[in-house]
Design a protein around this nucleic acid. Structure first.
Lengths: 94, 94
DNA sequence: CCTTTTTTTTAGAATTAGTTAATATAGCGG
DNA sequence: CCGCTATATTAACTAATTCTAAAAAAAAGG
């Protein structure tokens, strides 16, 4: 029954990354408002810049967001359709 | 923008509990096959009894599953519609 | 090349989560 | 009441996460 063990692991990894209030807020915000740079995110998040950046790194490493540099800024967006689907389900009736 | 801070926390708590391969397997199995007792779960899970029981306790504490005693056994089932919805979305196309 | 701005990386402390063996509890059949 | 089976709880240890401050890197402008 656990030949899907890798599958469970893979999904658990994604969920683990989503399972943090700040990262949830980042991902939900990006889905709803499109691209956003780090400085602007911070103004909504009330965490120090370094903390925000580390959350973004986790999201990047998990293949959930990606950033594109534009001059000094880096604009992030959600690049994972499954995650978009999951987040929409989670926040469906709020 | 973070007057929903409690909401993010609440959802993160649920996701944190789901974000473990063994617990994912338990929840998905319960959703697909209905009720199940602990001994039977273990036979599918390849973890010691105590480990399984502790995962179940986390799921119980989070309001995701509930158990009903039937003689010596305790039969668990998923009692959280939102979680059912999320899990179905996660495993949609597999 | 110096400075400023934006973002990332590193390092360390504090907290939280996961695993396991051992012990406890609950219900049943004699 | 005893022994048996199913499940839960505790205690101890290890591993992983989170947070923050400080330092580094990358791009732009003068």
């Amino acid at each position: 029954m656990d030949k899907d063990f890798d599958k469970y692991n893979e999904i658990a990894e994604i969920l683990k990354v989503l399972a943090h209030p700040v990262r949830l807020c980042i991902v939900k915000g990006l889905i709803e408002n499109g691209e956003c740079n780090v400085t602007h995110m911070q103004s909504c998040l009330d965490t120090p810049q370094s903390t925000t950046s580390q959350h973004l790194q986790k999201l990047r490493a998990a293949g959930i967001v990606e950033g594109k540099r534009n001059g000094l800024e880096i604009n992030y967006r959600v690049c994972n359709d499954k995650v978009i689907d999951i987040i929409k389900t989670i926040f469906k009736d709020n």
